[in-house]
Amino acid sequence: MSAIWTLARLTVKEALRRRTFVAAAIITLLFLFIWWQTEHSPRYGAIAGEREAAFMQLGLGMMRFFTALIGIAMAAGAISGEIERGTHYVILARPLTRVQVLLGKWLGILIPCLLLYLFWSAIVIATARVGASGQLGAFATAAAISFLYPLVFTTLTLCYSTFAPPMLCNALAMVSLVIGWSEGGMRGWGQALLGNGEGNHTVLFMADVAGHYAPIARIARASATALGLERYPMISMIMTGNFGEGLHATPWDVWWPILHVALALIAAILIFNARDV
């Protein structure tokens, strides 16, 4: 455990060196801009609390997306990149297992991601007046569920990093994001294709595969359900358009991303253990 923690701390130091927090500051400004937009948008406000709920939903969406991007950027070079640069040779000559090295990297990437995520959560709580509206518990649950998004993509990218060089790794991570985003479109398209309500089974099957491979929609749905967004027709309509299904999350929408992380981590360990360095 001590070796894992040592490597995690090293990875955190590396993240600080890469000016992750400059990117974080820019994203924070984006948050404030979106809050200002939502505050003045005529779209919301028909129902009490809708404006705050919309900002919370938008805020959570941004938080999980940008945290995932930062996680991907750090994970992409974590294994293959270090082997290419030659920094891994002296580490791997130490009495450590590759599992320890991988877990150290994983933790070291997730810690700054989590810190950023908490920082942005505080901004959303402050600007959306979450405390005043009595939504703090719901927001905390939704935020915890939303963190599965960066967790899934960081772990998946780290898995890619065990066999692919950094550029390819970044590309694979972006493709995975696109696959995740395409689920809702494919589902809507599949249902509309035949127009008889049963839909096109091939396209729907592809949507299912996309949803399992990159469970973005599941996480968004579970997070929206935790926030109780079904109460707000406008937000509900936007969400349904994006994800092709209603906001009725099931426990599997949370459990599958957790299982996904575990499977990606196991795959990463198996591949890293099997490869030559």
Binding site: L10, T87, Y89, V90, A93, P95, L96
Partner: peptide, 19 residues
């Protein structure tokens, strides 16, 4: 692990954590 505990290694191609 026991063998690696008892050896030291300097690689030809190396780059250390320069920060």
């Amino acid at each position: 692990l026991e063998a690696r505990r008892r050896l030291g290694f300097l690689p030809e191609k190396f780059q250390f954590h320069e920060f």
